[in-house]
Design a protein around this nucleic acid. Structure first.
Lengths: 209, 209
DNA sequence: CTTAAAATGACCCGTTCGGGCTATTGCAAA
DNA sequence: TTTGCAATAGCCCGAACGGGTCATTTTAAG
């Protein structure tokens, strides 16, 4: 039983090459292809996999994900894109995409990705995978950093996470605002961040507090 | 120039098959192999890639990552494991692993993973990738119901957590700074906070993002 | 005893934020 | 069709922050 595939891709040439690729292997079977989300939504039926371009005229591929998923919650979707931009990746993942691969990916790897998603896995191109992983280890030197925070710095860090202002922190610790600010500067240096929001996110991700 | 590889794997049979695999292709060259972290740490030198088993007698592969990275910060490490367990995956990623693949992966895909990491990407087996992606998916039971944040607000919230300023967020989303600020005001109202630090802490504690 | 690191405190300056308003557009539900 | 919410955008103003530089005191380690 061949894996059925639907395609939404406006770029005719690329769409044709995908169709040709799929037709070349009996393990895969093209169910339909459309150049826009609008046309696809009108006619499409559920397939094993949908290859969905991100940059489409009209409704974008990103916006199409929730619509498709609402109609067929089990529909598996692999995003095709030329962009490696953070925002698009995370948005696609948040919306429920099952894969995110770049158009420059070699044909055999595209089929690989389809196979992987069909088997219940997820397909990410290596560079995208790296960006996602980077979310879990924003700076790769966390061992030094966590241990290098002094007791006082950790204390102040925990108060920052509570959302206190420098002034309040100073009052709580019976030190001046300037001293608090100096400690915070040192914390920023050590953790390589430049704002409270960043330091809170990092501290919580790295379980420093 | 062949990609040099080091191996830490206690299971003799599997280690031998890896060695044989690498020896079969001139693009890859085995630099060394040891059955334990202890022995490896005594003798090992930097290679392009280290294949590191997780379940090792004595020091585990997970604990070995920071030690190795401290000695050679640029050393790339791919974890080998039979386990798909969440805790190990995230622990490995947090510690700075560059890949996480299952031992049952086919030989050709193991070489693929090595190549990908060598080229600066990350290597994840599809099932692992799926688990990581699941981390980003809003569980509609928790996210949509318990929080009244709109889609746009959630999007902006996620960018705040990355530490972006309002101005940068506006650029990323192609909207004006004022609009960003309005959204943030609404987020603050809904989550009952009054600063970025607070909203980041709350969002991460409540796993809103 | 000397030295290094940590903790304390201060000043200046420009940027960013947070809270207070008002207002228009579009879409969807009532 | 009206009502309401979401998203967009603007303005003002004071508070808070981030970065730079410098200086003193205390503590820990050698």
């Amino acid at each position: 039983m061949a894996i059925t595939i639907g395609i939404v891709e406006d770029h005719t040439e690329f769409r044709q090459s995908l169709i040709y690729l799929i037709a070349s292997f009996s393990d895969y079977q093209l169910a339909w292809s459309y150049p826009s989300v609008e046309e696809a939504l009108e006619h499409f039926q559920q397939t094993d996999i949908i290859l969905l371009d991100i940059n489409l005229p009209g409704i974008s591929g990103l916006d199409a994900i929730p619509v498709i998923k609402r109609r067929f919650p089990e529909q598996k979707i692999i995003m095709l894109t030329i962009l490696e931009d953070d925002h698009h990746i995370f948005e696609a993942l948040r919306n429920g995409a099952d894969g995110y691969i770049l158009k420059k990916t070699t044909p055999v790897k595209i089929l690989d990705a389809i196979q992987q998603v069909y088997e219940g896995g997820a397909a990410l191109t290596p560079m995208v995978a790296r960006q996602i992983m980077a979310f879990f280890k924003p700076q790769k030197t966390q061992f030094h950093e966590s241990s290098s925070l002094t007791a006082r710095e950790k204390e102040i860090l925990s108060l920052i996470i509570l959302g206190l202002t420098n002034e309040i922190i100073g009052e709580k610790l019976f030190i001046s605002v300037q001293t608090v600010r100096n400690h915070i500067k040192n914390i920023y240096d050590k953790l390589q961040v430049h704002s409270r929001a960043q330091v809170v996110a990092k501290a919580m991700r790295d379980r420093l507090v």
